[in-house]
Simulated scan of single mutants.
Amino acid sequence: MPRPALPYPESRIPNPALVHVGYAVPRAGLPSPASFRRWVEAALHGAKRRKATELSIRIVDADEGRALNRDYRGKDYATNVLSFEADLPPGLRLPLIGDMVICAPVVAREAAEQGKRERDHWAHLTVHGVLHLLGYDHIEDGEAEVMEALERRILARLGIADPYAAERDG
C-alpha cells in the first residue's frame, strides 16, 4: 500500500511523521491534526530520531481515559496521556512506534490548575507521550531528569516555557 503524500517533500523535513489523529470528543477548541504533527516532529527531532515514523493519537473523554488507565495501568482515574509502544513481531520492520491517548478534560483541568496556556499543555503532553513511545521514562530519578531536560529543550524550540518550572520553584 503506498504511503499517503506529505504536504511537502519528505526530503526537506528531518523526521517525517505520519500522525493519525482521532477525536472521540467534539473537536471545538482542541488542537488540529497539523498541530499534533508539528509537536510530534519536534519531539522526534529533539530525540534525534532520523527515520520515518508513524503513530496514532486518540483524543478521549474522562470516561474512556479512566477505563484505559484502569485496564492498562491498574489506576482507576483518567490520566492526561497514555502511551502504548508498538509491539511488532520480530523481523517486521515498520515505521510504527505506537499509539497515544490524550484525555481532553484532564488536559484542560491541569492547564487551569497549573496556570498554563492550554495549547502549551497539549504540546507538552504530546512531546511527553512521543518520548515514552521512543523508550524514555521517568520512573527512576535519573531517567526523569534526562526525559524532562529533553522535553524542556524541545518545548523551548517551539517557543513554550519550561513546564516543570513551577514544580522546581514551588
Rank of each mutant, 00 (worst) to 15 (best):
R73P: 00
M100K: 05
V60A: 12
I13Y: 09
Y8H: 03
A67W: 13
T79Q: 08
I102P: 01
D99C: 13
L30F: 14
R152A: 09
G115K: 04
L158H: 00
D162P: 01
A111K: 05
G98T: 03
I97E: 01
G129F: 05
N80P: 00
A108I: 08
Y77A: 14
A62T: 08
G46T: 04
P16T: 11
L158R: 03
G129W: 03
A52T: 12
S32A: 15
V130T: 04
P31A: 11
E10G: 05
L94D: 08
G142S: 10
V40C: 03
D87P: 06
S35E: 14
R73Q: 14
V25Y: 14
L44M: 02
E41Q: 12
S56C: 11
A86N: 09
P9R: 07
E140I: 10
G115T: 04
E10H: 07
R38V: 04
V101H: 01
G98K: 02
E151L: 02
E167F: 08
A34H: 15
A156T: 03
L44G: 07
K75H: 14
A24N: 14
A43Y: 06
I102S: 01
A166V: 04
H124T: 02
S11Y: 07
V60T: 15
A5W: 02
L68A: 13
A62H: 11
E167H: 04
R66G: 12
D137G: 13
V40H: 06
A161V: 05
P7K: 10
A108G: 04
H20E: 09
A111L: 11
R117Y: 02
A165R: 06
G65T: 08
